[in-house]
Structure formats: structure tokens, C-alpha cells
Amino acid sequence: MDGLPEFRVLTPRSVAAAVAAGARPGSRFVAGGTDLMANLRHGIGEPGTLIDLRDIPELHGIAAGPLGLSLGAAVRLAELAEHPAVAGPYPALAAAALAVGGPAHREAGTIGGNLCLDTRCLFYNRSAWWREANGYCMKHRGDICHVAPTGKRCHAAFSGDLAAPLLAHGAEVEIAGPHGLRRQPLGDLYAEDGAAHLLLAPGEFLLRVLVPPDPWPAAYAKARARGAIDFPLAGVAVALRLEGTGVTGLRVALTGTNSRPFLLAGTDALLGAPVDAGWRERLGKLVQKQVSPMRTTLLAAQYRRRVAAALAERLAGHLADAATP
């Protein structure tokens, strides 16, 4: 890899100072940098200023209360996975945090960084000379998408793990920026466009993630090329509530398959019935219909479609088994 491009680093100690710093043209926010440093070393982006958000106290800390969980955006993934207020009541979230990279990535990487992770693609996460030799691509410097050359948009896949369980739990995000604070559902942070998947205005950054209390039992699983360290080929979170043997609540969230993480639509049709083989098959079909993996990874798109469905079916089955005495 190349060295880092020229930049200077600012380390604001308050939200207001970070917002002021974010008004500088060519500035970029960073926390753990496990993804951004690799991209910068690949010649992707040349921010004149990096604004390291980790010295801001408001971005730290995990608090649990009657309103649920409040997670600072600069909380490290290792911290998140081990915290008793997370690991006990929100096992899917802890599992997703533990499924990010290797131990050293989780010591540096943060919640905010994982939620704002850049999208990934075979034709994008490559060295500068590789991309130049390939004529670049729509996401950076070029104008076509090598994955779908006749298409109009970039198909790079969102590959953050945390988004899936947080969507399944109905999390919201608090965003700071030049126009003050705003709070919105996590899902509204994302758009289905690999080159513009984050709906953050210039100068905005994540402050906190808020997860509602009394979560439904949930689980997260991902398929990946290397078990010990890898981005998801498909990542699935399932939250399932049962009364007796009938499903009274179901939320399924997917990551790694599309340019954004998303909540599966149409799960209401699966309510009221027990989780049996036929039910699982219907869930799997629903997943297959809504995911749209493209040739952005070394593994085939069709494999990712089927593995996403298989994971959803398996997780729902495990959750139902665990709930049935």
C-alpha cells in the first residue's frame, strides 16, 4: 500500500468545536480509522483535514435506563461487545460487534465508524494502480460501474455488521451538524446507492445511537470468506417475539447484500403462525426476493442471496427453539 496522503488532524474536544471544524472545506470525520486509513492509503479520497472525533466526551459511554440503551458513537466495538448492558439483553448486537474484523480492528473501530462504513466492492477496495489500470469506476474518479456496466448507479455493498441488529431493534441515531442536533430512525441514514449511501449533510456526524428497551429476543449471523476476520457476504439479524408457539413480532434486517442495510418488508404476513418448516421457507423466500447482491465480492451473488435466506431461516428457528420450553 501507499503511504497516507497529506492531511492535518484536528482533535476537537466538544461537539460545537467538531461542528465548527467540519465546516472546513475538504475535511473528513474519522474515529478508529480501520477502514478509512486503508482507503486513504489506496488513494481513495484526499481530505486536507481529518477531524478525529474520539476526544469528545459526548461520543463516549454506554448508558442503560428505562428509555433503553444510549451508545456513544465513539464507543469501541470491543467495548460494546463486552458491556454487560449490551451482552445480556442485546446478544445480537454483541454478536455483531464481535463479528467485525479481528481483535485489533475491534479495539480501534467504533460504533459510529461501523454505521458510517464506506461501501465495498471488488472494483473499489483496490490499490491506486489497480483501479487506474481498470479505468476507475463510478464510485471514484470513473463513470461506469464494472459490476453492472449498463446500470445507472454504483452497486458497492454496505458491509457494516452493527446496522443489522440495530435496525432489527428499531434503533434511532442522533446526528450533530451545522444546524444543530437531529434524531431519526437508523434506517433513514441510508440510501440504495453505493456511491452515496449515507444520508448525512456536509459537516454532520453521528453522536449517539439509541436502542429501545425491552428488546425482542434477537440473533445475528453472517457469512464471510474468512471466519476469523472479514466483512459480511451477507449478514442477518432476526428479532422474534412468540406468544405460545405463534409469532407475534418479527423484524429481519440485512446487511452486506445491498448498498444499504435494510429491514425486510412484508414480515407481517408471517405473524400468527408457528415457526415450522413451511414458515421458515416462506421467510427464506421473502429474503431472497428483497436482497439484491451483485458481483461485488469474490463469491457469487447467487450464493449470497441464498446464504442470506438460509441464515434468516436458521436464526428464526434457533430463536423459536430457545423460546419453546
Binding site: L4, G33, T34, M37, A38, A104, H105, E107, A108
Partner: peptide, 27 residues
């Protein structure tokens, strides 16, 4: 690998493992 994938550059920062190829000295 010099790109955060192999762990050969693992050092400790405050006792925790970190990858020196993805960490700035300034940090």
C-alpha cells in the same frame, strides 16, 4: 499485508492489540 488484514504489525496501545499499519503515530 500493509493493509490491515494480516496482523503482522500488531503492537499494543495501552495494552490492547492494534494494527500499526492503520494507526497514525499522531493518534
Amino acid at each position: 499485508c500493509d493493509g490491515g488484514e494480516c496482523g503482522a504489525c500488531t503492537v499494543l496501545i495501552d495494552g490492547s492489540p492494534r494494527l500499526a499499519c492503520l494507526t497514525r503515530a499522531q493518534e
